[in-house]
Simulated assay, not measured.
Amino acid sequence: MVHLHWWVEKVGETGILPADNTKLGILERHYVINEIKTKKLGDRLDRITAPHVFMSLRLQPTFGLRQEGCIKFQPHYADHGDQISINGSWAKGGRNRMGSITTPAACGAG
């Protein structure tokens, strides 16, 4: 709609579109903030037999990674003892990151 409003302004026909989009049947946007979008697998995680998929899914809550980052995760690159290194090509925003391993779960004991 922004493009249409811009165009009608440029051609001098601002009256053909109402200023309020709701008059065109377009509802106002409602932004949801502070909504937790994580899904708990619970005991279903134990039914996964592929070891790489299993570990990938365990990475998500343990290190707060996104699904794509977990799929692309390479332990030989990321493991630095008490820290993990996240390659920018795995992460949102394309930035390299370092994360401290601070919990037993992150050490593989959880």
Rank of each mutant, 00 (worst) to 15 (best):
K37M: 11
T22G: 02
G42Q: 06
T14E: 09
H30E: 14
N21V: 07
G12R: 02
I26F: 11
A19W: 04
Y31K: 08
N21M: 07
L17D: 01
I36T: 09
D20L: 01
G12V: 01
E13S: 06
A19Q: 12
T14I: 03
N34R: 11
D20A: 04
V11T: 03
K23M: 14
L17R: 02
L27F: 06
A19N: 09
I33H: 07
A19T: 14
T22W: 04
L27T: 08
R29V: 08
Y31E: 13
W7F: 14
G25T: 03
H30D: 08
K39F: 13
K23H: 11
E9V: 02
I33V: 14
V8I: 05
W7E: 04
T14Q: 09
K40N: 11
L4S: 12
H30V: 15
K23I: 06
G15E: 14
E9R: 15
I16L: 03
A19K: 14
I36G: 06
T38C: 10
L41G: 13
G12F: 01
K40F: 07
V8M: 01
K40I: 07
L24V: 05
V11K: 02
L27H: 08
G42E: 08
I36K: 08
A19P: 02
A19D: 12
E28C: 04
K40L: 11
V11E: 02
D20T: 03
K37I: 12
L27M: 07
P18S: 02
G15Y: 09
K23F: 11
I16R: 04
T38D: 14
T38W: 11
T14V: 04
A19I: 05
